[in-house]
Amino acid sequence: MNFFGKHYELTKALALTEFKRRYNGSVLGYLWSLLKPLMLFAVLYLVFSVLMSSPIENYEIYLLLGVILWNFFAEGTAMGLTSVVNKTNLISKISFPRILIVIAATFSTLITFFLNFLVFIIFLVLSDIHFSLSMLFFPVYVIAEYLIILGLALILSMLFVKFRDISHIWEIMLQLGFWLTPIFYTIEIVPIKYHSLFYINPIARIIWFSRTIFLNEHIPNFKLNFIIIIFSILIFLFGFLIFKWLNKNIVEQI
């Protein structure tokens, strides 16, 4: 904890800079962080609800939650991936824990996520879903997802220094992930024998559980929660160790 206390200011400054920079110079500025997922939502909603009349109840809430959680994951890992290389100038001139760069980059997407979540709440209030205590469990999933993002970003950022192809590969992986995750469809349309395969994907699980607490008004059972929490911690630790191992002579390699 001491570590984060000491470097809190720097992490915060880096994250805010990252966030400010992303929309700097565009007319709508920060609004883009809201507009991007909302546009995706609008397109999907148009296609699946209006044109194809999806049978899912509360489809807009169902879809929006999926979209913002996926967006968080996609953006977080993509930002984390390029973070170290983008900050070459900084790390080759200043000595400080390099992990902060990855943390800051992913943290800036967390800010975006919160903004998106606010919009989600507006939708939620406008819908006929009532508030339930189970919804308060949501932060647990956000933290779990963040740990997964950070763990992956730590690995990807190091790999990207060595293999620049990673950015393209990851882009394709994210595309694939988008279609293989029940974001705009439900798992029911997938043959049942593939269900377990789908749920290897931790993000799919997080989206599923989040929908459960918001739409079905109950918290998934202890075992499921335990698995996802442990899983996210493990991914983070794994990423952390890989990062620690590879980052030692990284400055010379960039």
Binding site: T17, K20, R21, N24, G25, N89, L90, K93, I94
Partner: peptide, 12 residues
């Protein structure tokens, strides 16, 4: 710091 202005962001 080794060099001046490291960490300066030209966009800010």
């Amino acid at each position: 710091f080794l060099e001046l202005g490291v960490g300066f962001d030209p966009e800010l």
